[in-house]
Write a protein that binds this DNA or RNA. Sequence first.
DNA 1: AGACTATATGCTTCTAGAGTGATATACCAA
DNA 2: TTGGTATATCACTCTAGAAGCATATAGTCT
Lengths: 108, 108
Amino acid sequence: MSEQMLDLVARRFRTLGEPYRLRILQELAAGEKSVGELVAELDGNQPNVSKHLQILTDAGLVGRRREGTSIFYAISDPMVFKLCDLVCSREVKKSRREFEALAGRKRR
Amino acid sequence: MSEQMLDLVARRFRTLGEPYRLRILQELAAGEKSVGELVAELDGNQPNVSKHLQILTDAGLVGRRREGTSIFYAISDPMVFKLCDLVCSREVKKSRREFEALAGRKRR
DNA sequence: AGACTATATGCTTCTAGAGTGATATACCAA
DNA sequence: TTGGTATATCACTCTAGAAGCATATAGTCT
């Protein structure tokens, strides 16, 4: 893989490497939402939410649609969830292994 | 998904969000390698490579094996490549779309 | 046009983490 | 034990990027 492609891929991973953005994506998984709705549900401040949405949009992960003065955002690529599922299931497995190792040690 | 799990997942994405670490993983894809070999092939400095390897190990993405004074690292979870492939193929598609949009505009 | 609402953008501060050189540690050999 | 090599860790500097506040922009209504 080329140096340039590695940079792109790394950048994409970093986009997903922010808990707040994952929370936004999770909210949007339920369907499109306006900035205001997201701010309310995530209990965040508006400029911050807007900035994260900008980053997600630049990455092509979400899309926007204007309606009056509101702007609605929606997931534009469900790949995100595949990625999260992969990582998640791995974390779960890892936790289980750690737990079992601990339990096994205790038993001796 | 719980707040805590989101943090874990985000952390994992950040681990992959570093071009240098992706390069290391790419090198290791060909088979296990010692720190010295990696340093030579990546043309980096040793402490830096060691630190990245530490991070990858903590994340459970690679494993180590001692042999004399050398330590050999190897991929311990091929999931990494699935993740990269997903992101990569998406980037490629995106580039193609952009290229075609540009070409279409030129033609007018 | 002016007032009002929703969203985006600038600017500043602050922190996580990457790079680097010096040094510590672990192993082997004589 | 001493010397030599491979790897890890420490201490430091530096930069990217996240949060937060103030302000700009875009749209709607009267």
